[in-house]
């Protein structure tokens, strides 16, 4: 019944599914599958025939960060690691507001708003800051984003500080650059809105004053190679408080509400922040 031409076609589809074709021949069949129903059906039949062989392959559990990366790449909600935390930390409009309009007055106001009068002073460790921040600047010095990291709860909030336009099909991807190391993808960020990112433990371990953050332009789903492929448009070191801008460095637990997430701004210790340190000390005593 089959003509030689039929057989040849069948062979190409079978070879495609088996995986023996070289790059060009593969691409040709892949194109046919996209464009003709007959090719799509023939290939689907071969997949049904051969794919049961995959049952023989030993299962290997992938590392947990792969799922986190998938989540980041697709900009899905934070992975469900227990109940989502409530409180200021989750208050994106607040971060947005801080990122763009931060001022000493804003910080002072926040302190007033959030410090309960009866709360005892929260224990804080200056040697091991519980929060870190970075100002991610464009080459021209303009602040593109601010990032605040909460290593304990493995999350980061990235807030756009100035509008950045992206070509269609392109989006910003955030990278962590460990000292002397290769960039590690933190995730895709929303160009015009604050993004909360869950951090996998391997990434949290790399956070520190010697590491930096950078933003590159990538395809919507994220860099296909796992390394930045597009231009790096902004960079910034991770530190305590980013320069004179009044970004919160540490947020300490007040001991009420949902622990660390009921936040107050606590004793920043860079010179530019001395005044607020005094203010806060006053409030506490």
């Amino acid at each position: 019944m089959n003509t030689p031409a039929d057989d040849n076609n069948h062979l190409r589809y079978a070879e495609y599914v088996l995986g023996v074709l070289d790059a060009d021949a593969r691409a040709a069949v892949a194109h046919e599958v996209q464009t003709t129903e007959a090719a799509a059906t023939a290939v689907a039949l071969w997949q049904q025939r051969l794919m049961p062989l995959t049952e023989e392959v030993v299962e290997v559990e992938p590392a947990a960060y792969v799922w986190a990366r998938i989540h980041h790449a697709l900009q899905l909600n934070a992975p469900a690691r227990g109940r989502p935390r409530q409180g200021l930390w989750n208050n994106l409009p607040l971060w947005h507001w801080l990122g763009i309009g931060a001022s000493a007055a804003a910080i002072a106001l926040l302190v007033v708003v959030t410090v309960p009068r009866t709360a005892p002073p929260a224990p804080t460790s200056t040697a091991n800051p519980s929060y870190m921040a970075a100002t991610i600047r464009q080459d021209n010095g303009v602040i593109g984003w601010t990032a605040t990291m909460d290593p304990k709860n493995a999350r980061m909030v990235v807030v756009p500080a100035s509008p950045t336009a992206f070509a269609s099909g392109r989006a910003p991807e955030l990278w962590l650059i460990p000292p002397g190391g290769k960039p590690i993808s933190v995730g895709m960020i929303t160009p015009d809105q604050p993004t909360t990112l869950a951090l996998d433990p391997a990434l949290v371990a790399q956070l520190g004053p010697k590491a930096a953050l950078a933003v590159s332009v990538e395809p919507i789903g994220g860099s296909p190679t796992g390394q930045p492929t597009g231009p790096v448009i902004a960079k910034g070191a991770i530190s305590g408080v980013p320069e004179a801008s009044a970004h919160p460095r540490k947020v300490a637990s007040t001991g009420i509400g949902s622990g660390a997430t009921t936040a107050m701004l606590n004793a920043p210790d860079t010179p530019g922040m001395q005044q607020k340190t005094a203010t806060e000390t006053d409030r506490r005593s």
Partner: peptide
Amino acid sequence: AFAELYKRTSSKLFGV
């Protein structure tokens, strides 16, 4: 559903 599918199938796919 996506999380569940990943949980159930990722080890198989990763093995391949």
